[in-house]
Write a protein that binds this DNA or RNA. Structure first.
Lengths: 325, 325
DNA sequence: TTGTAGGCGTTATCAG
DNA sequence: CTGATAACGCCTACAA
C-alpha cells in the first residue's frame, strides 16, 4: 500500500505538502497540487485511517451494543442509527451480546480502547461502575443508568396508557402483558406499570409474564403462547412486543378464538412485523427514526465536546388502530 | 487516558517490559510482572487499539456491506456473521447502502483504508474494477464477480426446483415470481431461471416481476401485491422472498382467496418471517448460520494469508412444508 | 508556498 | 530477564 511518503516522493514534494492537499489545511500552489493529485491517482493512494485516527485520537467509529440484531426493535433501530451516523461521516460498529453477559462485558472492555469514539447502549446489565467509570461518550436507549448518562427513550407512560385503553374499549376481562426480564433501570418498565395500573383501575385483571431477552426466538414465543393460552382460557387479551405479539395472535387464531371479539392483541413497538399478519395488529409504535436521530445527535455532541442540551430525551409514541383490539 | 508509558513509569520499568506482560511475548520476572499489573489496574490502563492496529497493520474489524439492515435475509445474516466474527476475536462494522449507489461507492472507498481488515459484500453494483482492484481480502455472498473473489452461496438451483415442485404438486396454473432487480452477477438469478424452467416444463405459466432492492418496504410490497392480484385474478401462486411473500399471502387472504386451495405462496429464505402469519408459509430456507460461518472462515483465511480452499462455496437449502403450498 | 522535525501509542529487534 | 531505539503512517507546529 502506498503511503503519503510515496506520494510525496513521486510528486517531488515534502510529505506535509501532500498532507495539506489531502486535508485542505493550507494553501498549495495549483501546480504542485496538480502534481500531487496525479501522484495519488497513479499510486492509488488511500490514507491510512488508523494512522489518522491515532493522531487525531479519533477513529470515526461509533459502536452500538444490543441484545440481539434479529429483534426487530434493535434491528430497525440499528438501521436508522447507521443511516444517521453515515450522514455525519461516522461508521457503525454493531455488536450483539446475544443475551450473554460475558459478551457484554467483553465488548464493554473493547470499547474502552481508542477503537471507537462513542458508544450507544441498548443493554446494560453489568455492574454499575462499568458505566460510571466509562471514560468515553456514552448514551443509552431505554436505560436510565444515572443522571449524567444521557438516554433517549420514547414515552413509555403514554404508551402503556394507550395500550390499556385499547383493551378497555374492547371490554376485555383478563389481560396479560409480556415483560422482558427486568434488567435494572429499564425505562420501558414504566409502560408496564402504567398499563397494569390503568387496567386495574378499570376493573380488569392483569397478569405479568416475564421473559428473558433472547431466551426465545420466534419459535420459542410460539410455544410459550400456545402453552399459556392452553392453560388459561380465561385470558382475552395480550400486550407484547411485536414478535411475541405475532406469536400470540397466531396461537389464538389457530385455537379458534375470534379476534378481536374474543381475544385482543396490542403490539408494542410497531415495526412492520405488526402488519405482516393477515390481521393488521393494533399497535403502539415508537418513532425509531427520530429516536435514532436524537441518539446520534446527542452522542456526537458528547464526542465533539459541545454542550449537551438534555440528558433525558423523550419522544412521543403513536397509537395505530388495527384489527386486533 | 493512561498510556503504556504511564504504566511503565509507575511500575518503574521500561515500556517494552509492560508490552511484554501485555502480550505475553517474552518472559518477565514474577515480581516486575506483579508491579506492572498493579500499575495497570491503578491507572485503569487500556491499550490503544488504534496504535496496536497501526503497528500490526491490522484493526481487527471486518466490514459487511448490505443493501439494507432491515431486510430479514441480511439482518439475520449479519446476526450470524457478528456471532462468528466474535468467536474469532473480530468486530463487525455493519454498513448499509440503503439502496443508494453513492453510499455504496463511498463505503467501498472507506474500506480501502486500513480501518478494516476485510470486507464482506452483500451487494456489488459498481464498476467491476472497484472490486478487481480492491487490494484487501474481499468475499461476497450471492454475487459472482469473477473467479478469484470467493463467494458463499446457497444452492439456488435446487432451491428454485424445490419451490417449483411445490406449485406443481398443488396444480397451480399461473404463477409469478418476484425477482430483485438484476444486479450483475447475482447468483440467486439461477433459482429464478430454474424455477421458471421447471414450471414451464410442467405446462404452467410463469411471469417474472422485477422489484428493486429497498425500493419497497413492507408497506410498498403490500400495495404491489394488492394491485397485481387485483389486475390479474388468474394468478394462483407466487414465489417471493419472505417479506414480499408475507405481503402477497396477506393480500390474497384478504381478497378471499382460499390458501392453499386457490392460491399458493412459497417463501424464499425461510427466516422466521415465514412463520409469523397465521398460516405457516411453505418455504425454501437458506442455512444462514452455516453461510455466515463459511463466510467468516473464508475471509479470515484470506486475512491470515493462508491458502483458501475454494473460491466458490455452496451450501444446501432445505424445503419446509407449510400450509400455503 | 514549501520543508523539517517531533510525536500520537504500540511492538519488535537488538543489546546488555 | 530487562532496556533503549526504531519503526508503523499521518499531522501540526515551527522554520525557511
Amino acid at each position: 500500500m502506498a503511503t503519503i511518503r510515496d506520494v510525496a516522493a513521486r510528486a517531488g514534494v515534502a510529505v506535509c505538502t501532500v498532507s495539506r492537499v489531502l486535508n485542505g489545511s493550507a494553501a498549495v500552489s495549483p501546480k504542485t497540487k496538480a502534481r500531487i493529485t496525479d501522484a495519488m491517482a497513479e499510486l492509488d493512494y488511500v490514507p491510512n485511517e488508523l494512522a489518522r485516527g491515532m493522531f487525531r485520537q479519533k477513529s470515526g467509529i461509533v459502536s452500538m451494543l444490543v441484545p440481539s440484531i434479529r429483534h426487530m426493535f434493535f434491528g430497525n433501530l440499528a438501521h436508522f442509527v447507521e443511516r444517521e451516523l453515515y450522514r455525519h461521516g461516522y461508521k457503525l460498529m454493531l455488536c450483539s451480546t446475544d443475551g450473554k453477559k460475558e459478551r457484554e462485558a467483553e465488548y464493554m472492555r473493547t470499547f474502552r480502547s481508542n477503537l471507537v469514539d462513542g458508544v450507544i447502549l441498548g443493554v446494560a446489565s453489568l455492574d454499575l461502575d462499568v458505566y460510571e467509570n466509562f471514560k468515553k461518550p456514552l448514551i443509552t436507549t431505554d436505560i436510565r443508568i444515572n443522571d449524567s448518562i444521557p438516554v433517549v427513550v420514547s414515552d413509555n407512560d403514554t404508551g402503556g396508557a394507550l395500550a390499556a385503553d385499547a383493551f378497555i374499549r374492547r371490554g376485555c376481562k383478563c389481560v396479560i402483558q409480556l415483560i422482558s426480564a427486568s434488567e435494572r433501570f429499564v425505562l420501558s418498565l414504566q409502560r408496564h406499570l402504567r398499563f397494569a395500573a390503568k387496567l386495574r383501575d378499570a376493573g380488569i385483571a392483569v397478569q405479568d409474564v416475564e421473559i428473558k431477552w433472547d431466551e426465545f426466538d420466534y419459535h420459542g414465543y410460539q410455544e410459550l403462547a400456545q402453552s399459556i393460552l392452553d392453560a388459561h382460557p380465561e385470558i382475552d387479551g395480550v400486550m407484547a412486543a411485536d414478535m411475541p405479539a405475532c406469536a400470540f395472535l397466531k396461537a389464538a387464531i389457530r385455537m379458534g378464538r375470534r379476534v378481536p371479539e374474543e381475544f385482543c392483541v396490542v403490539a408494542y413497538d410497531g415495526t412492520y412485523l405488526a402488519h405482516v399478519n393477515t390481521l393488521d395488529m393494533t399497535a403502539v409504535s415508537q418513532p425509531l427514526d427520530e429516536m435514532a436521530a436524537k441518539m446520534v445527535e446527542v452522542l456526537l455532541e458528547l464526542i465533539d465536546g459541545s454542550e449537551v442540551k438534555g440528558t433525558y430525551v423523550q419522544l412521543p409514541v403513536s397509537f395505530r388502530q388495527g384489527e386486533t383490539a
